[in-house]
Write a protein that binds this DNA or RNA. Structure first.
Lengths: 157, 157
DNA sequence: TGATACAGTACCATTTTAGTCCTATTAGAC
DNA sequence: GTCTAATAGGACTAAAATGGTACTGTATCA
C-alpha cells in the first residue's frame, strides 16, 4: 500500500549524511560515495532538495551542500513534498473539479481528510528521528484523524 | 505526496454503493451505472475486492455482489491492501535484503515504522466513515507513531 | 584563466497504471 | 436440457509515472 518513491528514500539517506552533530558541507560526489547512490542521481536529488529549501548549496571550488536548517526542523513531510511534489492522495485533492464522478462521489472529501491527517502526522516525524540519532525517547507524534470533524476545525495546534 | 491509486478510489466509491443500511446485492452493470465508472473497470475492481474477501459474489441469473461483512468492519487499509496489494512504503519493507544500501542506510527501518503507523491509522478508518453515513461524531482514530519505540513494543492493542 | 562544483533541463528506458476484451464457468428460468 | 444472466480469470494494450543519465551553462575560488 501507500508507498514513497525511491527518490524520496534516497533523499532521506542523503539528508541523513548531512545531518551530523554540527553542520556539515559535502559535495555531491562525496555524498554519492558515502551513500552508494549514483552520482547523477544524487545530484538530481540534491538539486530538488535545494529548490525546496531543505539544503543550501555553495558553488565553485570548496562548494557543496549543507542542511539549510537543523535536522530537527526538517520533517518527513518536508522531504516527501520536496521530492514528490504536492500530490494529493486522490486526483480531486490536488485538482478539484476535474473529476467526473465528483457529484455522485461523496467519498473524495473523506480521502482528503485522511490525506491531511497523514500529512500532519508525517510533519511530526523529524529527520533526527528518521536517522535514529535522536536517542530512544521520541516526542511521540499524536495524530488525530479528522474524519467527522467539521470542516475547518483544527484538531491540533 | 503519498497517494492512493485511482483504482482504490474507484473501489471505495463502489463499496460505498454496496454499503446501504441493510445489505444490498448489485450486479456489476448496476454498479457501473450508479457510479459512472466504466463497466469493464468496475468489473475488474469488483473481482479484486472479491478475491480479497471484501465482497461476496453470486454467479448466474440474479447474481451480483454484496459486502462480505458490515461496512463498519471494512477499513481503508483493507481497501488499499485489496486493490494495491501489500506494497511497502519502501522497497526494503516488502523485500528485505534486496537493497544494496541496506548496510549504510539506517533509514529504512524508520520508514517502515512510519509505514506501519500509517497502516494502523488507516485500519481505524472504516467504510462507514469514508461514506460519511456515520453521523457527525466519529470514533476518532488515535494514531501513535512508533518511531522511537523499541522494536516489538506495541503502542495500541 | 582554469579547475571545481552546482543549476537547469532535456532525454530515454523501464515499470506501473488504467482500461479493454475475450473466453470460461456457474446458476437460475423456462 | 438449454438458453440467458451473471461472475471468474486472464491476456493484452496504451498511456503515464518513475528512475536514471547526459549535456550545457554558470558561479566561485585559487
Amino acid at each position: 500500500m501507500l508507498r514513497i518513491s525511491k527518490m524520496t528514500d534516497y533523499a532521506t539517506v542523503i539528508l541523513a549524511h548531512l545531518a551530523g552533530d554540527e553542520p556539515v558541507r559535502r559535495t555531491a560526489v562525496a555524498l554519492a560515495e558515502l551513500t552508494g547512490i549514483g552520482l547523477a542521481t544524487t545530484s538530481k536529488v540534491l538539486k530538488e532538495l535545494q529548490r525546496a529549501g531543505l539544503v543550501a548549496s555553495t558553488r565553485g571550488a570548496h562548494g557543496g551542500y549543507a542542511l539549510a536548517r537543523p535536522a530537527a526542523a526538517i520533517s518527513a513531510a518536508d522531504i516527501i513534498d520536496a521530492v514528490e511534489g504536492p500530490v494529493g492522495l486522490t486526483e480531486c485533492a490536488t485538482h478539484p473539479g476535474q473529476c467526473d464522478l465528483e457529484s455522485s462521489c461523496r467519498v473524495g472529501r473523506s480521502w482528503q481528510r485522511v490525506n491531511v491527517a497523514i500529512h500532519r502526522a508525517l510533519a511530526d516525524v523529524k529527520l533526527t528521528q528518521l536517522t535514529g540519532r535522536d536517542g530512544a525517547a521520541m516526542p511521540v507524534p499524536d495524530l488525530t484523524i479528522l474524519l467527522g470533524a467539521r470542516p475547518g476545525v483544527r484538531v491540533r495546534a
